[in-house]
Simulated scan of single mutants.
Amino acid sequence: MISPDFQLDGLGRRPRIVVAMSGGVDSSVVAALAAQSGAEVIGITLQLYDHGAAVGRAGSCCAGRDIRDARAVADRLGIAHYVIDKESSFRETVIDRFADEYVAGRTPIPCVRCNMGVKFTDLLGLSRELGGDCLATGHYVRRVMGEDGAELHRAIDPARDQSYFLFATTRAQLDYLRFPLGGLPKAEVRALAADLGLGVAAKPDSQDICFVPDGDYAGLVARMRPEADVPGDIVDLQGRVIGRHRGILRYTVGQRRGIEIGGSPEPLYVIRVDAEAHRLVVGPRAALAVGSAALSEVNWLGGAIRPGAPLTAKVRSLAKPVPATFDGTRVFFASPEYGVAPGQAAVLYDGDRVLGGGWIESAAPALAEAA
């Protein structure tokens, strides 16, 4: 059975499918499904790290071992495979920006920037240069044809859904992209890999932030921007100094861990990161309540924006979508939302359909809006 994503009718010739192969089980199964469709298949792997330093890195993506795994899968499937060096571009557009965002007191999402840049811009351009009729990836989202063209929808498996990270996908990109795994649970994908004899069938999933395999984001940023890793004041909501922090790189909005203030009658959370003054503003959890958030770089896939129309908004990758409305630049939450951090994304949905989203620039406290 041919995946609906690979039914490329009306070409009058054998289709050519380019597959983004990261070396993991998901993209390997996509390559196998594409080959089963009878199309000519070309695999492309991006090298995003120095080969020598990345060979043994566990839990990464597009590193040395992953390149070898992708090549082995391509050889087994009998398809062409190319490795493209994008290390410099990845460092400039993703890693450097990640560090600069933390220095600015924001909480970045490098996976979205990677998809916006080297994966869905550079890779898509390479795919077209190779004469590909589409570019297929192993992302867990669905491309659904609607009345006005291709739509982006959540994956069937909610535990694997990656739509939050793909909100910036443009209409033109969506026309060309294919996501054949969006309708499958992860267990079935691994079973397919095993049935096909792919050596990556049991390979662990890569981490969300591939270039920080040990999870020490602050440590990475401190090494890259040591001049910004200095202690500063912790102040309460009235601006009174109540303690010291170890460097704003180590804190984000909503964080409680690491704020050691004696004598407080209730737990304290980071309410705001003031990068200019190099201080943290802390307060009780109630002070985290947000009524609305202003967005920048809004990407809209849902047709005409109807201010006040009910939809749902997701403000963190692991958060549940909550009822909201949108006026084109600001999202308004039906009930106070917590932990809304500048630098994160607000992604907007109509049911399972991704309407669009943007980067959170600022948030208005719920109490202030009520007043």
Rank of each mutant, 00 (worst) to 15 (best):
C210P: 00
T169S: 13
L249S: 00
F165Q: 04
E227G: 05
D175E: 13
R225K: 08
K186N: 15
L174P: 04
V290Q: 10
R240C: 08
I209D: 02
G182R: 00
Q255W: 13
R178Y: 07
G243P: 10
A289N: 03
L177A: 06
L198F: 01
Q162N: 09
G199R: 01
V253N: 01
A277P: 11
R171W: 02
Q173R: 12
R285F: 15
R257I: 10
G182K: 00
L280E: 00
A293N: 12
S264I: 06
S292M: 04
L198H: 00
L166K: 01
P185V: 05
K203Y: 14
D214I: 09
G183A: 11
V290L: 04
R246T: 07
H245T: 08
E227I: 04
R250H: 12
R250T: 02
S292G: 12
K203L: 14
V200P: 00
D229L: 06
P213L: 07
L249C: 03
K186R: 15
A222F: 01
V200Y: 04
R223Q: 15
F167G: 01
R279L: 11
D195L: 06
G183H: 07
V282K: 03
R190N: 08
R160A: 14
A191E: 15
P284Q: 11
V230C: 10
I209R: 02
A202K: 15
R272Y: 12
S264G: 08
Y164V: 02
A287K: 01
Q173L: 07
E266K: 14
I261H: 14
A191C: 12
A222N: 01
A277D: 09
E188T: 15
A172V: 12
S292T: 14
L198Y: 01
V221E: 00
E297H: 10
